[in-house]
Nucleic acid binder design. Sequence first.
DNA 1: CGACCTGTTGAGGCTCATCAATAGGCGTGG
DNA 2: CCACGCCTATTGATGAGCCTCAACAGGTCG
Lengths: 257, 257
Amino acid sequence: MIGPRAKTTARRAPALPVGCRACPLRRKQIFRQLSSGEVDFISRMKRCHLQLPAGEELLTQGRTSGSLYTLYEGWAVRLRQLPDGGRQILDFVLPGDLVGLVQAHGEIGYSVLTLTAASFCELDAKTVGAMFRTQPSLAMGVFEGRIQEQERIDARLVMLGRMPAAERIGHLLLGLRERLHERGLTDGTSFALPLHGLQLADAVGLSRVHVMRALRYLRQHELIMIRGRWATIPSVPKLAHFSGFAVGNSRAKSYIL
Amino acid sequence: MIGPRAKTTARRAPALPVGCRACPLRRKQIFRQLSSGEVDFISRMKRCHLQLPAGEELLTQGRTSGSLYTLYEGWAVRLRQLPDGGRQILDFVLPGDLVGLVQAHGEIGYSVLTLTAASFCELDAKTVGAMFRTQPSLAMGVFEGRIQEQERIDARLVMLGRMPAAERIGHLLLGLRERLHERGLTDGTSFALPLHGLQLADAVGLSRVHVMRALRYLRQHELIMIRGRWATIPSVPKLAHFSGFAVGNSRAKSYIL
DNA sequence: CGACCTGTTGAGGCTCATCAATAGGCGTGG
DNA sequence: CCACGCCTATTGATGAGCCTCAACAGGTCG
């Protein structure tokens, strides 16, 4: 189980702790700068700011939801649980990412689970239509965000379908490092990695035990060192070469809601 | 190799064999009906009608492209090739599906290969911006198509990460059957399946030989019968139960460009 | 008729899963 | 303060699933 003591109740903050206009996330290099009209529009979409502890479900597979969420701070995953109890992590949600888009009135096909304490901007899903009608460039930005996300998932498909254990882990960590780097959350070599063995296993499609063995291999070859909840990649090019990862493909900026 | 004799040149038809207004695809149940203004807009996006033989690359991984394509007739796949020569099929492209969307001015991360003789509507990618500005509901339809595609890929991730060989194949064929059924391309039990062993293997992340063994198992248990390029699923519920497939989730209609 | 492609089957080996047992970290409660 | 329980990492042993190599059969096409 990922969240054994996940019974804490969510805390809603009706008074926004962070106004959209002053949002510090929005200033980062990877995110495009918006016009003041666009920021106003987003302000009106925002329902509240949601604070969750680690190991809590933001969205639950099979339910419906009228909200979208932008992760403001912390880590989360998008995952799917199987009837036999297995889990597959589909994607990692990092600050600035949008989750919760579904086809109108449909069930969500995945759950979203926090890995750390995390806070989200909750947005009203019903306003998406209005966004397409009145904020075309914003809508197009969100659309491009989808395309980026799909490229990530494509890469993960290749990883699961065609790569052996150690390479999968290397590939996963390089992808995370790159995204964290864009957000200024790593010095380029080390970064926080709030995952334990089972969660890593659920992401790369292996058993927990085998993941730990692959990590030992990577450690012995000085490709990846994980101590506690902190990962170090001594040489990105070396690891990229080992795991067949194409470095630095994503130059595009994202929109943030 | 999937396309060994794939050196035939593409045939372009400057005079459109099918006008958008009379497009018979558009009339099918799964696709939403568009206003005449929207159809006009699409007409103007359309550059030409492209006819390709089987085993031909429509788009090539690593290149850039200024076009989008709607598959009009035939089958194609979206795939990624690896440095070691391996391939991973990311998704199947069926009539009405849109391929070729990329982040502005970026390289395409995958190739698109025809499995049968196929024809495409070629659309000008530069007009996408105008679509978002002037045709919001059309843009939103395309956007929802992305979400649907992502749900398919999520399912494939689970398949590759968490399922054994026979279940993977069952899952894949049920997904294809469902999409073909929506398009009226199956009687519910049998359908054309223009795939041979290696291509099936590249889709489910297994070796060709092992796929054939899994197919023997499925045949012996009367779950899937494949003869030539024709597949039969005697009992969809039985196969769905076997491979853990949730039947009939997609009620949503798609937009077609 | 032979070349080629695809399906089929067998044998052997490698990767990975599963089970099980031990050790270490951390918080809780005595 | 230590003792205890819980969770996570670690290691070994065993077996299942899958891959690779290789050989052969049947069909199609030149």
